[in-house]
Write a protein that binds this DNA or RNA. Structure first.
Lengths: 138, 138
DNA sequence: CACTACTTTAGAATCATTATAAATTATAAA
DNA sequence: TTTATAATTTATAATGATTCTAAAGTAGTG
């Protein structure tokens, strides 16, 4: 038996039934040391490699969105018409490599001292997101 | 005769023929004091109000993209599947009101002291974009 | 085991955007 | 001014990502 019990528990305690599709996606997304940045398209391609158990595209969308709703994934705003998701849901920022379209985590403490001096009356700050676009330096 | 000569000149000097569609869009976008944030959908709706001269949706896309390519518009990355454009092409940041989806300019000097401590080998910084999400403070 | 609510699924529908190819227009040369 | 041609506009089709739908399947409870 594989070590799925953690994911099964996590899913159950989140009010999500531990289906085999969700467990498989959990393992793919969260059973790794580094944080993982992906688009639905990426994820879909990886899942397609296992031809023994196909997961429908609709399920991939459903699963990713429910994981996001439960706070296990963060959606990243990038200047494209693709949604990027990040398994690191903590408060942090990103590099975007504009040559490869790759996202790279930037720890909160790697961005020094952000202070927003302007305020909008009747509004409070929900989050501050920094996107540092990088390119080849040749 | 209206005061289109500035736009005609600007277009011509950019290598774009001053068609009546481009001039009309120029006036709408650039003949104002405040910077203007819009989506193609916004722009399309405004242009539709003048029923005497319809501009095709394809032309709106073409025009906005050529203006962007010439550096007269800046595309803003927002956590949606819509492209926002900004007539302020200078280096600056944004508030995004997550209740209304409205974008508000944030002057460069209103964001204090951004320093990125991490570097990626072989890469140089192209731009730094700060998006401050705000919400109702009740 | 049976029931119910949740989940998955394939395919259709939608929405924004881009491509296409024919008609129109701006420009420069005759 | 007319002509030639290259750029532009246009309606429509095509695409691609995402969401919707409704039927079939599955997990959890009693």
């Amino acid at each position: 038996m594989e070590n799925n019990s953690i994911f099964v528990e996590k899913l159950r305690s989140s009010g999500l039934r531990p289906t085999k599709q969700r467990i498989k996606i959990c393992k793919l997304l969260f059973d790794r040391k580094e944080t993982f940045h992906f688009t639905i398209n990426n994820l879909s391609k990886i899942l397609k490699k296992d031809k023994s158990e196909k997961i429908s595209l609709a399920t991939i969308y459903n699963t990713v969105h429910s994981f996001k709703k439960k706070g296990y994934l963060k959606e990243i705003s990038v200047n494209q018409n693709k949604s990027y998701f990040d398994t690191n849901t903590s408060n942090h920022h990103h590099f975007l490599d504009i040559n490869t379209n790759e996202l790279i985590d930037l720890k909160n403490e790697d961005v020094h001292n952000i202070k927003i001096k302007k305020r909008i009356p009747g509004k409070k700050i929900n989050s501050i997101e920094v996107l540092v676009k990088i390119e080849n330096s040749n």
